[in-house]
């Protein structure tokens, strides 16, 4: 399957990744191989076969609605790339 430059651009945007132009060709060919493999799998007739989503047949792993202590605020903020004493700080995400 042919991977276009446009496709690489879209995917890298979604994945929040950027590539050097020399890497692009390599990625194009590798991604193409993966998709070819998927196409191979698609040749199999799966009409009437339920998709297998989970390897386990466990269902309803629910919990009661009981509060457990929260993470301490300073611990929670400690690993943030940027924070003040109350909030996580991120680049401005809106134009005002």
């Amino acid at each position: 399957m042919e991977i276009t430059d446009q496709k690489i651009k879209e995917l890298s945007h979604l994945a929040k990744l950027s590539f050097k132009s020399e890497d692009k060709d390599k990625i194009k060919s590798e991604l193409g191989q993966i998709l070819n493999f998927c196409e191979k799998l698609n040749e199999l007739d799966t009409e009437g076969v339920e998709p297998l989503v989970y390897m386990s047949d466990r269902t309803n792993h629910l919990r009661p609605d009981v509060v457990k202590p929260s993470l301490n605020k300073s611990d929670a903020l400690k690993n943030a790339p940027d924070a003040d004493s109350d909030y996580f700080r991120v680049p401005k995400v809106i134009k005002k």
Partner: peptide
């Protein structure tokens, strides 16, 4: 009382970032 997928409190108007857990972070 608690959030959808973790046991920290679901309460409106608490001090910022006090009802949080490693799950929803």
């Amino acid at each position: 009382n608690t959030k959808a997928f973790s046991s920290d409190e679901a309460e409106y108007g608490a001090m910022p970032n006090t009802n949080i857990s490693v799950v929803n972070l």
